[in-house]
């Protein structure tokens, strides 16, 4: 067969024309679908999402209240203060990432937009890895603050809890290299649970490596 792409261009064009003819969309129908309600729903959907924003503000308010009522107990105060700081910083970082994603101009040329998307993806993966891995070390801090706030019990005064917290910190620190090693060693195989696969790819660095490869591919594609 001596078929070339030029030969097929005309045939493709005929198919495209047929597609145009088959389109059932009419301006009238489209206008009907574009209702006020839909517009409002798109407009209302902020970068952070209503529920998440409510949880974030609520958490900050509760921690603020906790700080006010525990100012005379330095250990609890500084623990809650560090937690509050983390909640604020993490929330702002997440909001900025989502805002950047939301504000991406999809009308940019393909290479430029795809490059920006991939850079955002790298930032998002890094944030997730940091939160997931450090979360293993400090998860008991929110627990301690909740117990103090809800039940008025200062767990720092309990020798058992101090031992528990020490072991958790040690275990959390040991978990980080172990989790990375396991994800690299076994996370590449078939996995029934999508979430586990996602986490494994993320902490093993496979996602970031793939994103860097794609950025390099975009650079090469544009530089020839």
């Amino acid at each position: 067969m001596s078929m070339t792409l030029e030969d097929l261009r005309q045939e493709w064009s005929d198919h495209s024309r047929r597609l145009d003819e088959r389109l059932r969309l009419s301006a009238h129908l489209l206008r009907d679908e574009w209702t006020e309600r839909q517009r409002e729903r798109i407009g209302k959907r902020g970068p952070f999402g209503g529920i998440r924003l409510t949880v974030w503000i609520g958490t900050m308010a509760l921690l603020g209240l906790f700080l006010g009522t525990h100012a005379d107990q330095p250990a609890l105060f500084f623990t809650a203060f560090s937690l509050d700081s983390w909640v604020i910083v993490a929330g702002i970082a997440q909001w900025r990432q989502q805002e950047a994603l939301r504000n991406l101009d999809f009308g940019l040329p393909l290479l430029e937009l795809q490059g920006r998307l991939e850079s955002l993806r790298i930032a998002r993966i890094r944030s997730f890895n940091l939160a997931f891995l450090t979360g293993q070390i400090v998860w008991w801090i929110p627990f301690l603050v909740v117990v103090a706030g809800a039940f008025g019990k200062n767990l720092y005064l309990s020798p058992q809890f101090r031992i528990f917290a020490t072991w958790n910190i040690a275990g959390g620190i040991a978990f980080i290299p172990l989790a990375i090693w396991l994800a690299r060693r076994y996370g590449d195989g078939p996995c029934r649970w999508r979430l586990v696969r996602h986490i494994a790819d993320s902490i093993a660095g496979r996602d970031i490596a793939a994103a860097h490869d794609y950025l390099e591919k975009l650079r090469r594609f544009g530089s020839e």
Partner: peptide, 23 residues
């Protein structure tokens, strides 16, 4: 918000059904 819009935009796939061998 676009569930019903997708129905409005729906189109048959003539390229798949009527395409010749070359296509």
């Amino acid at each position: 918000p676009f569930d019903s819009l997708a129905d409005t935009l729906t189109v048959d796939d003539p390229l798949a059904e009527e395409a010749g061998d070359n296509m």
